[in-house]
Design a protein around this nucleic acid. Structure first.
Length: 409
RNA sequence: GGACAGGUGGGUGAGUGGUUAAAGCCAACAGACUGUAAAUCUGUCCCUCCUUGCGAGGUACGAAGGUUCGAAUCCUUCCCUGUCCA
């Protein structure tokens, strides 16, 4: 509803769209900037369609957003870009296999844009299965224990084989908390990897229609974030990411780091904060000048029975919903909310039915995408600050009325 | 009628004299989840009380007796279930 325009026509247009003729494969067009906050609305032109920003990218690690078909994502949710993961796809089915099928888009039958993460997050999440060296990361496969050495160059090669629209450089994502000394060493390593990866990418990208984003690291230290951002600017990349967040730090700290880092990145290029966040945090990131975000929360929490609604969370497995005939979220017009009762959704969850994951993911992802559409519209209309106030008032209201929190303080 | 095999907490199912209020699994209930080792993981899961503690009582392994310092565990009788034979 908020997306505007008939979807089917737009879809056909993208599928026929020839490769971009210009020099830069990725073009970012800013349509409006909120004078009060600096939030931006724009259009990100890729070889696989135009992405209205700010945008939330559903996570499809293994070449699928779990529980959703590409048809759901395209026709029902109107997602314009999804994320996939180099580490997972490298292990299985492997870059050669994907390349053999003409790239990841064709392999998974997804005609819109794809961003691939480099495996840098797995440096953090697979801490017991990896060893970081100056040259790269030695991973022990979580599938069969095989050793694989990822370098800045090899991850670029893999992502080129996938045919990603946006590639990410290999980086080191540190846990929280980390010492300043560890963070500075790690940040310099990430910088060296970014330079090596970027050099390699420039040698190979001739005629390819994609872009490589470097990633700002520096843990929770503003001085390191600034130094890292400044160094990465020399690469003159078409877009920049802020990584190393959502690793266990307090929510406000993530916001602070983004607030000090985002303004240091080129104003005319997309800024991507990796791995965030809760629904109420999305407008806050946007107000810091962020254009792209991704997070597993809507999809993962969906499968775990945690549903995001316009009136707060609904943990559908709770006994209180057993005979609740209301729709999950009366203000949502996704298929799930239009069609099923909370009681039925709870039944499906309790019964362990596959359909629950499908319906829940459909809704949660839709909820995130709708929030971003509202944000984008408000920036275009010049009402973004009002929306931020509205959304934060709603979340305060939700906190105040939450039964568990009410008696706590 | 006879011969075997059994009856354990909401279910299943370990346990054959003491560290057993009783493993594991399931169900149920609650919590976590932030560039996905996730259809995952964690906790609670007989009752009562409080100074909330590897706390104190009380119940509990079909029923009732018995042996023993001590019994889900050994003995006796009874009840019930399953299989087979008449």
């Amino acid at each position: 509803m908020l997306a505007g325009g008939p979807r089917s026509r737009a879809t056909r247009q993208w599928q026929r769209m020839p490769s971009p003729e210009g020099t830069s494969a990725l073009r970012f067009e800013i349509e409006a900037v909120c004078p009060e906050t600096g939030a931006r609305a724009g259009l990100l032109h890729t070889a696989h369609g135009v992405i209205p920003t700010p945008v939330f990218m559903p996570v499809g690690t293994q070449g699928t957003v779990k529980a959703l078909t590409p048809r759901d994502l395209e026709q029902d949710l109107d997602a314009r870009i999804i994320l996939a993961n180099t580490y997972h796809l490298f292990l299985r089915p492997g870059p050669e296999r994907i390349e053999q099928f003409g790239g990841l888009h064709r392999f998974m039958s997804w005609s819109r844009a794809i961003l691939t993460d480099s495996g840098g997050f797995q440096v953090f999440s697979l801490d017991t299965l990896r060893k970081v060296t100056e040259e790269g990361v030695l991973f022990r496969s979580h599938l069969n224990g095989d050793a694989h050495f990822f370098t800045p160059e090899s991850t670029v090669d893999a992502q080129l084989a996938f045919g990603s629209d946006i590639l990410m450089v290999l980086d080191e994502c540190l846990p929280y908390p980390s010492s300043h000394a560890d963070a500075i060493a790690s940040m310099h390593r990430t910088l060296r990897w970014a330079e090596a990866g970027y050099r390699h990418y420039l040698r190979r990208e001739k005629g390819l229609h994609c872009a490589l984003f470097p990633i700002v690291q520096g843990s929770m230290f503003p001085d390191l974030r600034a130094a890292c951002a400044e160094s990465l600017l020399r690469l003159d990349a078409p877009g920049y990411a802020i990584g190393g967040l959502s690793v266990g730090e307090p929510r406000d700290l993530s916001q602070e780091i983004v607030a000090v880092t985002a303004p240091l990145l080129p104003a005319d290029r997309p800024r991507y904060v990796m791995g965030v966040g809760m629904p109420e945090e999305l407008p806050r990131y946007v107000s810091h000048g962020v254009d792209m975000m991704d997070c597993v929360l809507p999809s993962r929490n969906a499968r775990n029975g945690y549903l995001f609604t316009s009136t707060g969370k609904v943990v559908i497995k709770q006994a209180r919903y057993a005979s609740d005939s209301a729709p999950l979220d009366p203000r949502c017009d996704c298929y799930t909310c239009r069609t099923f009762s909370r009681a039925y959704l709870r039944h499906l969850f309790q019964a362990g039915e596959i359909l629950f994951s499908i319906l829940a993911t459909l809704h949660n992802v839709r909820h995130y995408l709708d929030i971003m559409r509202r944000i984008r519209q408000s920036i275009l209309l010049g009402t973004f600050p009002e929306l931020v106030r509205l959304l934060s008032a709603e979340s305060v209201e939700l906190r105040d009325t939450a039964p568990s929190d009410a008696c706590g303080q």
